[in-house]
Amino acid sequence: MTPHRALLLALPAALSLLPSLARAQTRDGGWRQGHPLALGARASVRAGDYALVGLGGHLRVQPHRLVTLELFADHFVGTLNDALRHDHEVGGIVQLNVLRGDSWALYPLLGACATLAFVHSPQSGGPTVNDIHFGVRVGAGGQVSLGRGFGLQAQVEALGYLGHPFQVYRFTAQTAPDLALYGLGQLTTALNYSF
C-alpha cells in the first residue's frame, strides 16, 4: 500500500472517532476559553495544480480572545507522474475569532508557510530532486468543543506557492530553472487539546 493511500484510509477512520468524543462533552463546554495554549493533531487534503494528503501537528496560542496564532508542521505525500512526491511544511496562521460562542468559534485566517518538497524518480535508483516552495494561505475555519479539553477544528484554505516546477518523465527528474506559481485548495481537520 502506498503511503498516500494509507493516509486516505486513516483520515476517515480518525474522523469516525469524533462523534463519540462529542458525546463526552462536559457542561463546562470543554472549550476551555481563556486557556491560552493548545496542541493538535491534524490531517489534510490538498488539490489543485497537484494533489497531496498529509498528517501533521500544530501549536495554538491565544494571546487575546479574538486572536489565535497557530504554528504548524505537516508532512504530505502523493504522486507526480508516477513519481513519489513528499512535502514537509512549516508555517503559521493568524485566526480572528470573529464569531464565537461558549463552545464554538468561526474565524477567517491568514498565514504563510515554507515547504521542502522532494520528488523521487519512479525508476529504482533514479534521481531525487528537491526544492523549497514558499506560500501564503487565506481561508476560514471553525472549531467546536468536544469536552474534557478536546476540540474539533476544521478549516478550508486557498494556498499560493512560489517555487521551481518539478519535471518528471520516464527516467528524468529535475527542477526547472524558472520560478512558477501554484494554486491549491486545502481541507484540514484537527483534534485539539487545550491545556
Binding site: Q123, G125, G126, P127, Q167, F171, T172, A173, Q174
Partner: peptide
C-alpha cells in the same frame, strides 16, 4: 549498467546508482 536515471537529458546530468543492481 548502473545508471539509475538523469536530472535532464543533457549536459552529463547522469545519476549513477552504484549501490543498486
Amino acid at each position: 549498467h548502473q545508471a539509475g536515471g538523469n536530472r535532464g537529458v543533457s549536459n552529463a546530468r547522469l545519476v549513477l546508482d552504484l549501490q543498486g543492481p
